Simulated assay, not measured.
Amino acid sequence: MSKKWILGLLFAALLALAACGNDEEAKKEGQDKDQKQEQKAEEGQEGQEGGEGEQAKMPEPDLKDTPEVVAEVNGEEIKKEEFESAYKQQFQQAAMQAQMSGQELDQDQLKQQMVESLVGQELLIQEANNRGYEATQEEKDKILEDLAEQNQLGSKDEFMAALEEQGMSKEEIDSQLELQVKMDQLIEEEAGDLEPSEEELKQAYEQMKAQQEQMGGEGQGEVPPYEEMKPQLEEQVKMQKEGEEAQKLMKSLREEADVKVHI
């Protein structure tokens, strides 16, 4: 497991957002939606006619040429083990998306995206440490509680127990929680007030409705009224803004940093 496991959740999401956030790609995805149903039907017929051997298989991550040190950021090494752990996690998502769209997964491109994400992550970690932020136990507990809720576990203690079952020590978990608090403080200081406006919330609501209509509303029913969705939209828009600020800061830090990429 990556030593930066909590931060990996954020940057995996940012990486996916960066990979598919292009407007043209989004439009193309919408245009391809109608073709997917036909493609699935054709694939189903081919599978029946040709047997299981002709059905598309999930690719395997190609990591045979990964160097021992994937990158260096201001003298700090990003090692093979950390890269491979993060890559395998992202690879699963990317492979599923590629299979659904009928496109071939470009592993070389995915590797470059992943190493750039890890470089950016390391730059933010170094900056957070350089600014001397402090993390209270209350702040660390809040992150645990949020993660427990996201993973549908009853309490932070249950979440801690689940992590320990995966081989993480309490000391390692506490260290990463402290780092996450510092990262949050860094983004908040850089971004300032991130509270979304009413206009931004309504725009997000309309986008949500449009996406569901584009997907045919399969098994979803109608989108709940705006007022009912407002708390969720506020959180969604705020997280998006935080992600954008993180990307800006990473770009700025990268311009001044000594970065060597070996993959």
Score class of each variant (00 low, 15 high):
240 Q>V: 02
131 R>K: 12
247 Q>I: 02
11 F>N: 14
91 F>M: 13
221 G>E: 01
217 G>D: 03
42 E>S: 02
107 Q>L: 06
259 V>T: 00
139 E>I: 05
116 E>Y: 05
157 D>M: 10
219 G>R: 03
218 E>N: 06
194 L>G: 12
188 E>G: 09
48 Q>C: 14
159 F>L: 11
66 T>A: 10
129 N>R: 12
117 S>W: 03
164 E>S: 13
38 E>M: 05
120 G>E: 01
156 K>M: 11
13 A>H: 08
15 L>K: 14
20 C>R: 09
50 G>P: 01
233 L>D: 03
178 E>T: 04
40 K>R: 03
1 M>P: 15
172 E>A: 05
146 D>S: 10
112 Q>N: 11
6 I>F: 13
228 E>M: 15
120 G>A: 04
242 E>C: 11
125 I>T: 14
248 K>G: 09
111 K>N: 04
186 L>H: 06
98 A>C: 04
97 Q>D: 10
138 E>A: 14
77 E>A: 15
23 D>L: 03
200 E>D: 13
59 P>G: 04
144 L>W: 00
41 A>W: 00
189 E>H: 00
1 M>F: 10
260 K>E: 14
212 Q>K: 11
178 E>Q: 04
192 G>V: 00
119 V>R: 03
237 V>W: 03
72 E>R: 15
132 G>E: 12
248 K>Y: 10
223 V>I: 00
125 I>F: 05
206 E>V: 00
181 V>Y: 02
127 E>W: 05
67 P>E: 02
61 P>V: 04
60 E>L: 06
80 K>E: 13
78 I>T: 08
62 D>F: 04
114 M>F: 07
21 G>H: 04
71 A>T: 08
55 Q>L: 04
82 E>N: 14
152 Q>S: 12
208 M>L: 10
161 A>F: 03
151 N>M: 04
138 E>S: 13
5 W>M: 14
91 F>S: 14
96 M>Y: 08
263 I>K: 12
177 L>V: 01
77 E>P: 15
190 E>W: 02
172 E>S: 05
80 K>I: 11
73 V>C: 05
